Amino acid sequence: MILHCVFIRFQQEVTVAEKQAIYTDIAALKDVVDGIVDVKAGPNVSPEGLDSGYVDGFTVTFENAAARDAYLDHPDHKAVSEKIVAAAAGGMSGIFVFDMKV
């Protein structure tokens, strides 16, 4: 399995409701992209203070790398990605992505 982790520095003016709408759109991809096992999203709750300003994020668990790759190319994912980039502080520079085998 692949754990796809995305951490976001949202612009200050992005509301909790707007963040939730993005997370709802991401979760909806499970219904249209084969191979998504699970989706989780929310704010950082770590007490360590090591978030480097990435205080929100989500994870998508995929059956395998092929499912992750199909997700990345899926038009619905691309549409959600555009919303994330538009809401992130600094656009792409406000997003950190890390994938790992689990």
Rank of each mutant, 00 (worst) to 15 (best):
A67R: 03
V39D: 03
A86T: 08
E13Y: 12
Q12M: 08
G57D: 07
G53M: 01
D38I: 02
A17E: 15
H74L: 01
T61G: 01
S93Q: 10
E18P: 06
V6P: 01
F96Y: 12
F7I: 00
C5F: 01
V80A: 11
K101G: 10
E63C: 09
H77G: 05
S81D: 01
R68E: 13
T15D: 08
G42K: 06
Q12N: 12
N64P: 07
M100T: 13
D99Q: 06
E82W: 00
P47F: 09
Q11N: 10
S93N: 11
A67G: 03
P43I: 04
V60P: 01
V45S: 08
K40V: 14
Q20S: 12
A88K: 03
V102L: 15
T15R: 10
T24W: 00
E13Q: 15
V37K: 05
H77D: 04
A21G: 10
D51C: 05
G94A: 05
V33N: 02
V32Q: 07
A27H: 09
I26V: 15
L3T: 13
D34Q: 11
L3I: 12
E63I: 09
K40F: 08
Q11I: 00
P47H: 09
V85P: 02
N44T: 11
F7L: 15
G49L: 10
V14Q: 10
E48G: 07
D73S: 14
N64C: 12
A89P: 00
Q20F: 03
N44G: 08
L29Q: 06
P47S: 12
D38P: 01
M92D: 07
D76G: 01
I84S: 02
H74K: 04
I22Q: 05
D31C: 07
A67I: 04
K83D: 04
D69N: 15
F10G: 06
Q20V: 11
I22V: 15
I26N: 06
A17N: 12
V32Y: 02
I22R: 02
E63N: 14
F10P: 02
I84R: 02
F96P: 00
M92N: 07
A86D: 12
V102M: 12
A66F: 04
I26T: 09
A86P: 04
A27E: 14
A17K: 13
S52I: 00
A89V: 01
D69A: 14
G49E: 10
I22C: 09
A70T: 14
T15E: 08
N64H: 15
G57Y: 09
D99F: 05
F7A: 13
D38M: 06
A86I: 05
V80D: 02
V33E: 02
D51L: 03
I26C: 09
L29C: 06
C5V: 14
E18I: 08
D38W: 03
C5I: 13
V102A: 14
A66E: 15
G90E: 03
